[in-house]
Design a protein around this nucleic acid. Sequence first.
DNA 1: CTCCTCTGGGAAAACGCTTTCAGAAAGCGC
DNA 2: GCGCTTTCTGAAAGCGTTTTCCCAGAGGAG
Lengths: 355, 355
Amino acid sequence: MSERPSTPVHVTLDVVARRAGVSLATASRALNGTTRVREDLRRRVRAAADLLGYIPNAHAQALASASNNTVGLICHDVGDPYFAAIAGGVMRAAAEQDLLVMLASTFREPAREIAYVSTLRAQRARAILLIGSGFQDRAWERALAAELEPYLRAGGRVAVVSRHRTLRVDAVLPENRAGAAALAQALLALGHREFAVLSGPPELTTVTDRLAGFREGLAQGGITLGPDRVVHGAFTREGGHAAARELLARSTGPTCVFAVTDVMAVGALAAFREAGVQVPQDISLAGFDDIPLVRELTPPLTTVALPLTAMGQEVIALALREPRGPRSRVLRVGGEVVLRASTAPPATPLTGRTS
Amino acid sequence: MSERPSTPVHVTLDVVARRAGVSLATASRALNGTTRVREDLRRRVRAAADLLGYIPNAHAQALASASNNTVGLICHDVGDPYFAAIAGGVMRAAAEQDLLVMLASTFREPAREIAYVSTLRAQRARAILLIGSGFQDRAWERALAAELEPYLRAGGRVAVVSRHRTLRVDAVLPENRAGAAALAQALLALGHREFAVLSGPPELTTVTDRLAGFREGLAQGGITLGPDRVVHGAFTREGGHAAARELLARSTGPTCVFAVTDVMAVGALAAFREAGVQVPQDISLAGFDDIPLVRELTPPLTTVALPLTAMGQEVIALALREPRGPRSRVLRVGGEVVLRASTAPPATPLTGRTS
DNA sequence: CTCCTCTGGGAAAACGCTTTCAGAAAGCGC
DNA sequence: GCGCTTTCTGAAAGCGTTTTCCCAGAGGAG
């Protein structure tokens, strides 16, 4: 019967070698070009390989040579434009260096993150890239560090983007504080005095940094942010939407709102629109990140622009750069305040009014 | 000196086995749970493995067991929100099934696509997922098919999303024609009679399908689309932008524009804004796909909504579904016309006027 | 012509696991 | 007590490469 496949599933190197009339060893050397092989033999092997459609088994190669050209990329959710943009940069750089990227989305579950690190360790990935804010939960971060530490010792490379430095690894860090501070100043310069912040989960380091920076910037203008002016929400469009609604419900009357993330700002914009609050006439809105589509919004969103694609390219370069000295390297990338139409001077110039 | 690492880099299974006082075989069985192992031995092995921080070598496992739980995902560019959304769905499904996803971005170069298929073959990926329109270039498609065919014969699974059926593989196909036709009808119903299309590269099948569908829909209303009313551009925001400018330059005065892709529509919207053309007052604009942010635009974009995340989940399910009968399966997903504020009745009701 | 150094090729030993194949131990009916 | 299953365990044979290690032969020097 045709039950049992008579043809072996994959062409292996020794078939190629036999066909070319050389030994297995020579065939391997001919194809990899590590050692000199007589030119005619090399050609015979190549011809046989092509003829037979030989595809080397990457697992066998990795096992035998203990080498590997895959890197792991762990982010919260590739579907999110922020991560997608960074991932795009990583892919670009990976393609140039013939690296294969194993992608992992944690969907914001710390346990999944750790599990993925473990999986990538098992895959003997050359590098593990962690994109995005870590979890403030001490226990998880420790567990992660414990998982990463033996990997590093075994020669693995780890680099992070936008993640707090609890881990001693190379990092691409946006200037969250400075960027938020600069934004605050720009908003002050527009004449705003009454601010509110749509903040993300307070356990994310990115959030605390941006919040702190924003406060610093405001402080330069003598403004402080009352606790009733900070609303926390999830790091998503819906989170921003809900936070904005909550803010409106409190009706403390800020003239300017800073959403710590563009994605949240998008949700906030929708919430404002639904509530009949006009941006920027009634309220100014600013975000952070400059993800691809926010400049297309109406009004286009004022934000702090981060070079997301470049950050993706940098993080992989950083991870793979050879002289991994004793100390970890940090590449700080500046955020540039981009004033767009979502921010404008406040409607009523509040000259020296005390709330 | 401390030159040579005295500690072996990785803990291997036989170290674990020795530590637990059992044989290599038993240790393997204890950890994998394939065969019954006496409970106390199993516990000893587990304890030893945990103590030593044992991480199995996935390559060795794959080699020895000829199994593998990785799938490859090939798309044009993960940075593009369209692909990002689908990839997000794939990741979700993959996480649930403990599959590791190897991601590849072709950056729209056919050669790279084929190279990636080859790489994924070498990795012995369980499945290869191709997302996005194929290349019309016959030679490339043939080369791709030639690369895929032995993979399929070797038991590999291939599934595509939104890719023309030159390949005999499982597919998730959006109803491009029907969706575009429905959109055309909806636009006709608004009262439009003068249309234009911002089309993508004519060699992409998605483009031709949507264009044909749109024409069909218009034909129902007795409208035909002159060649001067179709502008081709790249499948990107910039492509849409350029195409829209070109259209305006031709000044043939359509009241309604259909961009075959939301991403292009976004570019068009920007171009219109720059040119002082108001949407929808001066011109109505519609897209296709319903990528995440277009509902947030002002005006929110009328489009044909595709369940992108679900499509990603479906394609991986399709690829892995067991009874791969002789014929390939096709999952058609409908596009739903979503009328938003970017379309409105034309300013001047053109009652029966002939251009 | 012999000895020595190179070059290049083949045999075989890893690489770290899974899995087959027996064999030992234990339980059971008679 | 004896044979017969049943369970488990261990030895060893792969899986498909790379990479020693070693040897044959070629070429040069003396």
